[in-house]
Design a protein around this nucleic acid. Sequence first.
DNA 1: TGTACATCAGTGAACGCGCGTTCACTGATGTAC
DNA 2: TGTACATCAGTGAACGCGCGTTCACTGATGTAC
Lengths: 196, 196
Amino acid sequence: VDSVPPRNPGRLRADLVAAAAALVERTGSVEAVTLRAVAREAGVTAPAVYGHFPDLGALLDAVLEEGFLALRAAIEASVAGVEDPVERLVAGCRAYVTAGRAAPARYRAMFQRPQAPGGRGAFDVLVDAVAACQEAGRSGSRDARGDALLIWTALHGVVTLQAAGVGAPDLDGRLRDLVVRLTLVEPVASGGDGAG
Amino acid sequence: VDSVPPRNPGRLRADLVAAAAALVERTGSVEAVTLRAVAREAGVTAPAVYGHFPDLGALLDAVLEEGFLALRAAIEASVAGVEDPVERLVAGCRAYVTAGRAAPARYRAMFQRPQAPGGRGAFDVLVDAVAACQEAGRSGSRDARGDALLIWTALHGVVTLQAAGVGAPDLDGRLRDLVVRLTLVEPVASGGDGAG
DNA sequence: TGTACATCAGTGAACGCGCGTTCACTGATGTAC
DNA sequence: TGTACATCAGTGAACGCGCGTTCACTGATGTAC
């Protein structure tokens, strides 16, 4: 029983991306991941990679792209069904941090290179969420784009600093606090888990 | 005139660290820096490195250590002579971001590994600065350590997101805004470059 | 001042290794008749 | 049902390269007499 069961057609591509993502986390950086190590991890010889990717760079790009998709999907899933705009914003931010922490090395790599292309989509979602809070009269600010940038910056800081072992788990509990201070300048009246 | 002028004794060590730091920025990551490349950059052969460092890892550790020293020195210099506690806090935060942006790849590497040891010192300085604002009645919060953590997180986000080309230069001008919102919950009366 | 010698920072050659990539190949799968 | 063949994903061997590290060495600098 030393023969490997046959692979579904097109399955290797996904396996390679998963193997590469696992190695990114294990080694802690994208730069340390080699094509041969990915092939090894996927149980395949190195040249097999070239049937699915033109080179190592393309494979790693696929890892980052999958990261952006996962990040966006996690946020959208967490926000689905939440009506209150402030709760939507908080839930989305929490999902962002959780998704980032789930694969910290990949997350870092996603925003490492200048002009990370996949981040824009998530940012626009965030701008809308902040604007919704403002339109509902739940924020003292009127600059949705600017506030969204501040929040994104803070969330990015939470994910990357926690990956360095700083402030965890303090920051988890204070995420709502962070969001409220940054965009809801005048304290909101209600607030599910606050001082109520 | 093809002979290199003699080097001051002990100078090569500093040259190697500087060469390594330059390569970290040029390649964008610590992992991509090789011992041979550092030696080349410093105008020396590879084995010469072993006279000053036991191995490549030690050399790179020295780069990060220098980064922590530079960060702390920049903050202390910017704060020197500033009396007003809020202005001190803002000046220190500005210096932190400026110093981080001056060597973004090195900065990222400094806080990449879990339990980055050199960050604690700077954090304590920050806690003191926040506490000073509170004692002067310039902050509505009483949790200096918690607020300092929020600010540090945000500053970290500013440095690393800007390195990715996001939000620059928007975030530079809004740094005071960020600090004020995070710790000076009740708006301060004065404020040098604000809406005055 | 001049000579012999110790010191020691940096050199040059060499090693074994894992890397990315190429190439001709193999052997299982699916189709045509 | 059975046979011949096309397809094509993955293999195994090989290449040249830069790497980290070792070793014996060299040649400049400083000291002792």
